[in-house]
Design a protein around this nucleic acid. Structure first.
Lengths: 190, 190
DNA sequence: GGACACATGTAATACGTTACATGATTTT
DNA sequence: AAAATCATGTAACGTATTACATGTGTCC
């Protein structure tokens, strides 16, 4: 009854709810096809996870009737739907609405320890990666526009917005490196 | 020799490099004081981690000389500095420069399973959380401007940029919900 | 000198990853 | 029919989390 799903569990519940009854393998494929692969969707993660959710009464599984393969089809129970709703709906904690994690920002916070030339190389490399990611995200948005699902479009726009914001920020960083105003941030010794 | 540090390990190396020799406790405090608490900085994470890094030869520890407490001071070895540089520097993989993870975007991708009223509530709640986060991020940036560290300022600007981008995106989502054009995305049954 | 926060850990637990194993289906 | 791929798992491993245990300075 009690117990809030983790991020990965919530996402699995969401996939099962959105797609209707499906196999663990189909869930894995969704994760692997995601343009922002936060989780690997590895077998070792998904198969035990869905069984966990069955034990908690959030999913039920029935044998694959009238079908070629032997596996199980998972579907939401009423309790599972209620858990999913609780995970999705207000109140949203600060870990959801607060500053999202960003490995690039993490790295930049330690740039002081690199020599100045390496700092510039870092920012150029980051901008290059950003350009590539922007292209991919734009392609994904075009793809999403072809389909009928408005949510997929909105998600793609969100990803694009995040990348554009990062681009602008990286350009600020680059300018800040070019202008030697910040009196040469020292590289502390080890 | 070989082996790339994980995100958390890289961050710990970075903190030790930036701050100079410090205790595991000081490292923990850095994580806990971070405005975007990606990691808890729990004792059970940090103390074993630094010992792991010592075993790998990336950190060295000496007893806290001339000091009140009994703990150990950790500092970077040359190998540790080289690992840190490798973690920071190019080439940056797509997991660093690609679309950053975002729990809000994850949730939104499943909004189709909620009734229309709950969808609107979700977006309003997300916008409210975003306003709060923006306020906190602006306060943090003001704080950062007081200090001498230009990197801290840039990191704070990055967080702010991410939140602003999310705000714009959420407003797009809200408009898209208001206009009932997208022919009422169905709520699939479980 | 008792209370309380600071500081340093350890133990149990949970979960995600990689790698492996195996059977079924499709392709060539 | 052999090879390749799809699909369903399991096992070992590493590591982050919460909770607990303990010692040590500080403050009334």
């Amino acid at each position: 009854m009690a117990g809030v799903p983790s991020e990965l569990e919530g996402a699995v519940l969401g996939i099962v709810a959105r797609e209707g009854p499906c196999t663990a393998y189909a869930v894995r494929k969704r994760f692997q096809a995601s343009p922002s692969p936060q989780w690997s969707g590895s077998a070792g993660a998904i198969y035990p996870l869905v069984e966990r959710l069955v034990e908690r009464g959030w999913l039920r599984s029935r044998a694959q009737t009238s079908d070629r393969r032997k596996g199980r089809l998972y579907s939401l129970t009423p309790a599972g739907r209620s858990r999913l709703t609780a995970w999705l709906a207000p109140p949203l904690g600060p870990e959801v609405t607060g500053v999202p994690p960003d490995p690039l920002r993490t790295r930049l916070s330690f740039l002081a320890v690199l020599p100045a030339a390496a700092r510039r190389a870092f920012v150029e490399e980051a901008l290059a990666g950003n350009r590539a990611a922007l292209q991919a995200a734009r392609a994904d948005l075009r793809e999403a526009r072809k389909g009928p699902d408005p949510w997929r479009r909105l998600v793609a726009r969100g990803a694009l917005a995040a990348l554009r914001a990062r681009k602008g920020w990286l350009e600020v960083v680059r300018r800040s490196l070019a202008r030697p105003k910040p009196k040469s941030p020292r590289t502390p010794k080890s």
